[in-house]
Design a protein around this nucleic acid. Sequence first.
DNA 1: CCACGGATGCGCT
DNA 2: GCGCATCCGTGGA
Length: 200
Amino acid sequence: MSSNLLNPSFYKRTAKEVARSLIGTILVSRIAGLRVSGMVVETEAYLATRDAASHGTQGPNRKNRSMFGPAGRAYVYPIHARYCFNAVTGIEGIASAVLIRAVEPIDGIKVMQQRRQRESLKLLTSGPARLCEAFALNRQQDGISLTTRRTTWLEQNPAFTADPKSLRATRRIGVTSAKNLKLRFVLRGNLFVSGPRYLG
DNA sequence: CCACGGATGCGCT
DNA sequence: GCGCATCCGTGGA
């Protein structure tokens, strides 16, 4: 049971490795007494070096501080009046993280529908800010540990076997710099992957 | 299915 | 003001 919980050493790797490894794992939140979960099907890595799109490139400030913290904590930031959720990776003091861009809903679908004000399963969690709303993630979760089962965490999924053919790397979505790096990972063909179909 | 434009709040110039 | 790791509704193929 608790052996499924992803531990700090899982996150103490490069953002690219962690982004790839997170595909197929299970994201869980238990907030306001409501538990929801989903399988991670899309991630993006934001690197410690040579990545102009990373929020860490300007050095630490109040907004991005948790990105410089120890691996296995959350980095939640606001954008366009919404929130996006990251897992911090790598070495403490150097900013790197993995953005969770989409999950496939598993438990708590009614709760997600209520929070999202939508019925359609496809629109509940297919996008970084959509899944934050469905999982009730916001700045209150910024900096919290993901390696205890407190409010938000990630688990290994025993039912999922990573078929290398189903894992695909593409360019990241929405970034205005470092566009050409292939740091987005998706489960090929999964209905809940965000963005245009031709990107994989 | 895809492209487009407007809305949204925050931090910085 | 403006940019932003976004979302949603609309309109056309």
